[in-house]
Amino acid sequence: MESGLSLSEVSQRVHWSAAKTSMLQNGLVPITDADVMALALAYRIDDVRRQPVFWGAQRARDPRTFDVVTGGTVPCVNWTYSEVEAEASYVRVVALDVLPPLVWTPEYSAAVRYGQIDAASERGHRSYDDLHRAQMLSQLDQDPTLRVDLVLGEAVLRRPVGGALVMADQLFQLAVFAQLPGVTVYLVPDSVGVVAGMTSFTLLSFRETQFDDVAHLDCPHGDMWLERETERRPYLELFGRLMSTTLADDETAERLHSAAQDLKDTAR
């Protein structure tokens, strides 16, 4: 821990056993809001970092009642996207404008960041470092501990972010990504036309039953997290509608390679 305190030292400060502290820190037992406050004071955590965890502990006990009482005005997710994704067991991504950071090559990443508006860059809410990417990819390989369903709009394949050669290399990298055991890539063809409410978003699910799914949207003013069931439902429904329009796996792979080769030929 960054505080330098041992389990026994923390337990002495909060007046309970080291075993309880260990189980709380490893998510083996539910944590109450009172426990959160006690640990936060013991570790000298400031208000900015403490409040989201405090409200999250309250909400975890009865999410529906919490949402009704607070009117959905109390945000419980205050982590970066990378921090939340690292805890997820199932990630559903809909990418209709730009590929998700998990699959970016360095050149594609540089091109996306160059095109960001200043407000987004200053907030840093799109930060997604190489170490985190490597950790996520390792969870999708061999015996995967993570599952990713990536739904792409066909137009994304033809948008030459960073130029034709950069995009061609990115699509070849995407084809490699699609072969990982924990990954499935789906393609929504242009022929589908417009599906009502189409937008890019991510749904994240977790192994722990006390944690509800969350929806994430990347906006110019910063990350937007949707935690209430009524807020998440339209995105779940949209994901289902888009999935019903996707191509078969072999056709998706064929169009992916074809788009990459066309871009490479253009670059030549």
Rank of each mutant, 00 (worst) to 15 (best):
M1K: 13
E2Q: 13
L7H: 12
S8F: 08
V10A: 14
R13Y: 13
S22C: 04
L24Y: 08
Q25Y: 07
N26S: 08
N26T: 08
N26L: 11
I31W: 07
A34V: 10
A34N: 07
A38S: 08
L39S: 01
L39K: 07
L41Q: 14
A42D: 06
I45A: 13
V48L: 15
Q51D: 04
P52H: 11
V53I: 04
F54S: 03
Q58N: 06
A60S: 04
A60Q: 02
R61D: 06
R61I: 15
P63W: 01
R64D: 07
T65G: 05
F66C: 02
F66D: 01
G71C: 07
V74W: 13
T80S: 15
S82T: 05
S82A: 12
E83K: 15
A86I: 00
A95H: 13
L102G: 00
V103A: 02
V103C: 02
Y108E: 00
V112T: 12
R113P: 01
A119K: 13
H125D: 09
R126P: 00
D130V: 13
Q135T: 12
M136A: 13
L140R: 15
Q142D: 06
P144F: 03
L146M: 05
R147N: 06
D149R: 14
R158M: 09
V161C: 03
L165W: 15
L165M: 15
V166T: 12
M167V: 05
A168H: 05
L174K: 00
A175F: 12
F177N: 01
V183M: 02
V185G: 00
Y186E: 01
A196P: 05
G197A: 03
G197C: 04
F201H: 09
T202H: 09
T202K: 09
D212H: 15
A215Q: 02
C219R: 13
P220Y: 06
G222S: 06
E227L: 11
E229D: 15
T230S: 05
R232W: 15
L238R: 08
L247M: 14
A248G: 05
E254M: 02
K264A: 09
K264I: 12
